[in-house]
Amino acid sequence: MLNGNDKIKFIYYTPDNVTGLLKTMNACRSYRLCFDDLNSVDIIDRTAPDTPLAKAIYPGYVPELSALKRSERLFEIGPEIKINELLKKGATVLPPILIRALTECAPPNVRNILSIGGVICAPKIRNSVFAALSILNAKAEISSYTTANLRFLVPIQQLFKEDGLDLKPGEMIIKIRIPYEDYDVDYYNEIQDKKTVITFVGTASTFRGTISVCKFAIGNWGDDIIRETEIENGLVEQKLPIPEKIIEGWTEKFANMFTEKYTSFSPYVQKSLINMFNEFLSRL
């Protein structure tokens, strides 16, 4: 995010194609990656940490980064595509849970300049979209100038470490890949605490009267998303409709998770999230 460093006079680069972008990134080493919506990420060369951060790169003029493609198995979303454009182009093809998360992340006039790459990189608004992308098994396709022919895929949850975005100098997210899957149940809800917006997203598929896939995630402002694979796996192969007693049992297990692991949530938020989990199970 923009901070006290703003007083530094940056030299701006606005490349027009992917090769030019990767070449500029490779040459700059330490730079600030800027997005349309005031969000930015500082990529620092850890091998030479004393290099002054004086160069800024804006990838918004690269047409390849603003494309949405749909193949047989997956959606390929360019990180610089604007959210409103994505919602227009992908209204009928994108998973409903992602559409809901994208719609909720900002008002429509802000969505005209907000890019999906910017949303993922910005810690304050990352939560809603990030949680949805996580349960959809989205992967980021990363490329660099030195390995231009070697693009590698990283699961979206592994893009971040404690100190921020885990991209090496010269690396760039070229696409966001979302595997195409049809889910029978989509659930999205959010709760506002004093300063934070916490999102609960869930999807599930059924096959011959049993749950075949069940995923849910809690997106927390600025922090990593919370996923409980133990509960998710436990719900798989559960016969439908789920009896109330079993729903109560799983809800209790979900509630215990907060007292054991995630104590930072206020009691009000905890109770709301438990209710959301209960509602999600009741919808199955």
Partner: peptide
């Protein structure tokens, strides 16, 4: 922060908050 809508202008015929647009993206 783009919340109040007081600085709305049309950028390529789309309403955007001008306080959130940097000059490098106006080219």
């Amino acid at each position: 922060t783009g919340r109040c809508g007081g600085c709305t202008v049309l950028k390529d015929n789309l309403p955007v908050p001008a306080c959130m647009v940097r000059m490098f993206s106006v080219r």
